[in-house]
Write a protein that binds this DNA or RNA. Structure first.
Length: 548
DNA sequence: ACGTGATGACTCC
DNA sequence: TGGAGTCCCTCACG
């Protein structure tokens, strides 16, 4: 039995679980349930059927049993045999079985293969991008000394005032950044350093006319085949788990942004020479940045939205993060409603939808008819009929008309049914809006026909995809390629790790894999609006770019 | 019955 | 050696 102990671990001695690890970890909320005890049986020699799941030490011990050991063992046995005057037939048979098993295991090179597999499964993470920094050691302050130890009388302190408001509002207010513009100060640059001028040039570079070539499926597939991951296309762009990411539309360089769990926004120019390997890090929010997009009309602007209730606009020209919209509730999602990207639809986690016009102060604020108060996951605006927007609610996607919204209960123009668990994303296809792709926790990706905009849109395609990302990963969502009307990208839980591109018909177009540079789940994925490039962000802040 | 909110083993420097 | 970094397919409760 392993003797190594870590914090919070209880070693159950002399009890061996049949189907569990030998050690049982105790956490504050997860104590050993009494009913589990029935799965333990006494570890005694009277029970010959005792089974134990091998732990690491055991495996190492087995690995160490080279032929020499085997020889030793046998000589030991012979020695005992001579001393005790021979072995029983049963013991001889047992030894023979052991020899045969060892010979078989050696013949298939199991241990060697397992060693190789171990080395393959954990390549060293990329050291590009944000660097490890040792935390600056602050001057050690004199330790506090109690009044009792100072031999003084205890002070009479008044009780603190009773906390007001709900827990929720308390958790929001103290953590939110102050409203008003925040200076655009990179946290990984020396104080006083200006933003690189090249950044300014790149950001103002208008995207060359939108690339809308209708590629035949075969042609599209061969384009995807030219896109590869390389060592220099992986970098740590933010510190924590990536929640959202976007490519800047400029085409002379690959420039992208990522938002993480801690409210940070990282900018990365591939091959750039500013910051850490081209990475600049900002902190405009305090909680997860769950949605971001560059303004199509003003490429110097990056809109970012956070659970902390703020929607901000990073403007490189002004070098600030401007306040765009502030809410009491956690914000979840937004999309641009107008071509000039000055009007936006913003959705809160609790089902409120706001139409935000950045030119006028004050915002109209609508509450949709959602029954479940925690139901709004995603909004997507129709690319042609901009007054329509789709809302992923708990188990249904509803398409609303922004001109006909009511304060409390709005009527949906069309609905997409068939989801059996909560929907994590729903997006209109990029050119026509004739399709909507949804990702659902019931392990299906669905494509709907929304061309007719009838009260119920018909389901065209269902693709099985494991969506059980568990506790530590961002949810997977299917996102269209803006260059191709009918194909979308989605992350995957499959090993080897991969990113998949599907046609709306359900046909897999390509699985992007890389044994050397990709070993983690890429939950957040997006295509470049003009170039043949694809990004994927993981749970430790690393961005991966597949590009031609 | 689902949504939600809760860590920890291991590795590297 | 210990602390920071990395990665991640539960589990119980309301």
């Amino acid at each position: 039995m392993a003797t190594r102990r870590t914090k919070g671990e209880v070693v159950v001695k002399d009890l061996t679980p049949v189907n569990m690890e030998v050690t049982v970890r105790k956490s504050s909320r997860n104590t050993l349930a009494p009913k589990r005890l029935q799965y333990f049986e006494e570890d005694s020699t009277t029970k010959p059927t005792r089974r134990k799941r091998a732990n690491k030490t055991d495996v190492e011990n087995i690995r160490k049993r080279t032929p020499e050991h085997e020889e030793d063992d046998h000589s030991d046995e012979k020695y005992t045999a001579n001393e005790n005057g021979g072995l029983s037939a049963y013991e001889l048979e047992r030894l023979e079985n052991i020899r045969q098993n060892q010979a078989f295991l050696s013949s298939i090179n199991l241990y060697q293969a397992s060693e190789e597999l171990n080395q393959l499964s954990r390549p060293k993470p990329s050291q590009r991008g944000l660097l490890r920094r040792t935390v600056a050691v602050t001057a050690v302050l004199p330790s506090r000394k109690s009044l009792r130890l100072q031999m003084k009388e205890a002070e009479v302190l008044p009780l603190p005032p009773e906390p007001r408001g709900t827990l929720l509002s308390q958790s929001f207010s103290p953590t939110k950044k102050p409203s008003g513009p925040l200076p655009m100060k990179a946290v990984n640059m020396e104080t006083g350093d200006e933003l690189p001028s090249e950044l300014m040039q790149l950001f103002s570079e208008d995207s060359i006319e939108e690339k809308r070539m209708v590629l035949h499926q075969n042609e599209y597939c061969s384009t995807l085949k030219t896109m590869r991951l390389t060592e220099e296309r992986v970098a740590k762009v933010v510190k924590d788990r990536i929640f959202s990411a976007a490519f800047h539309p400029c085409s002379s360089s690959l420039l992208l942004a990522a938002g993480d769990k801690g409210g940070r926004v990282g900018l990365w120019k591939l091959g750039g020479d500013w910051g850490d390997d081209g990475v600049l890090l900002f902190e405009p929010h305090t909680r997860p940045v769950c949605c971001m997009a560059f303004s199509p009309a003003h490429p110097t602007q990056l809109l970012s939205l956070s659970y902390d209730g703020s929607l901000r606009c990073m403007d490189v020209e002004k070098s600030v993060f401007d306040d765009v919209y502030n809410a009491q509730d956690a914000l979840k999602t937004f999309d641009f409603m107008s071509h000039d990207s000055l009007t936006m639809v913003v959705g809160s986690l609790y089902g409120d939808v706001a139409i935000v016009d950045r030119r006028t102060p004050g915002n109209s604020h609508e509450s949709l008819h959602s029954l479940d108060p925690k139901s709004l996951r995603c909004v997507s605006v129709h690319p042609l009929q901009r007054h329509y927007f789709a809302v992923a609610e708990s188990r249904v996607v509803s398409i609303y008309d922004s001109r006909r919204l009511n304060k409390n209960k709005s009527q949906a123009v069309s609905q997409l049914h068939g989801h059996s668990l909560s929907i994590s994303s729903a997006y209109f296809s990029p050119w026509t809006g004739n399709r909507v792709v949804t990702s659902c926790l019931d392990d299906n990706i669905r494509v709907y026909d929304t061309s007719a905009m009838t009260s119920t849109s018909s389901l065209l395609t269902t693709i099985r995809q494991n969506m059980q990302t568990g506790r530590w990963l961002s949810k997977l969502s299917a996102v269209w390629d803006p260059k191709q009307e009918d194909c979308f990208v989605v992350g995957s839980m499959l090993k080897p790790r991969r990113v998949q591109v599907y046609h709306q018909s359900g046909k897999l177009q390509r699985s992007f894999m890389d044994t050397e540079n990709l070993s983690t789940v890429l939950s957040v994925t997006a295509f470049h609006p003009t170039r043949n490039a694809l990004l994927g962000g993981n749970a430790s802040g690393r961005m991966h770019v597949f590009s031609d």
